[in-house]
């Protein structure tokens, strides 16, 4: 098992998986009136990405989270096959996506953490959600750092125009 179950009053930490987090996104924008965007909100399951040390030292009031989607939902939509998830995604060979296994005891399904969908939400919002039992669990150290490394690699990697030629 790679998850812990923190108490509802425990502080927010990197790797926390929290349900029903409100995220806001701009749906459309008229260039003629850029100060009046069409804004929508949705309730998402998110994974906390802000570093543990910054959270522990109360350095931040805003927390970076990534949206997590049930792997089954992506397969059910026909966007990917189960073998894609179980193969390259699970093995960490797809930058921007991080696979989390299911945990029956915590009722966490298999999740895809979408590291390309990042949001900044108030720390207080996450604390309130945890206080009302919306924290599914917390990714344990080692696995949490593995996620953090994948997150960093997604944005720090250098892509070549095409692979080197071989004979």
């Amino acid at each position: 098992m790679i998850f812990d179950r923190p108490d509802s009053g425990d502080s927010i930490d990197q790797g926390d998986i929290i349900r029903d987090c409100t995220v806001v996104h701009v749906v459309s924008l008229d260039p003629q009136t850029p100060d009046v965007p069409d804004v929508q909100s949705s309730l998402e399951r998110v994974v906390v990405l802000t570093q543990t040390c910054d959270l522990a030292q109360r350095k931040v009031t805003q927390v970076v989270v990534a949206v997590a989607v049930e792997a089954e939902e992506i397969v059910a939509r026909g966007q990917l096959k189960a073998s894609d998830i179980r193969g390259p995604v699970r093995a960490g060979r797809v930058f921007g996506w991080y696979f989390l296994p299911a945990d029956d005891a915590l009722e966490i399904p298999e999740l895809i953490v979408d590291l390309r969908q990042l949001h900044t939400v108030p720390l207080e919002l996450l604390e309130n959600l945890c206080g009302t039992g919306k924290r599914d669990g917390r990714i344990r150290p080692l696995f949490r750092e593995h996620l953090a490394k994948h997150f960093a690699d997604t944005y720090s990697r250098i892509g070549l125009p095409e692979p080197y030629a071989t004979e």
């Binding site: 995220v23 804004v39 949705s42 390259p88 979408d114 969908q117």
Partner: peptide, 25 residues
């Protein structure tokens, strides 16, 4: 300016190219 957001659909990921063999996407 403060806007009241309307409830919208859930956010689904953009599907990346899934590598075959031993490639990395």
């Amino acid at each position: 300016t403060t806007f009241k957001a309307k409830p919208g659909p859930r956010l689904m990921p953009d599907i990346p190219e899934i590598p075959r063999d031993d490639e990395v996407a």
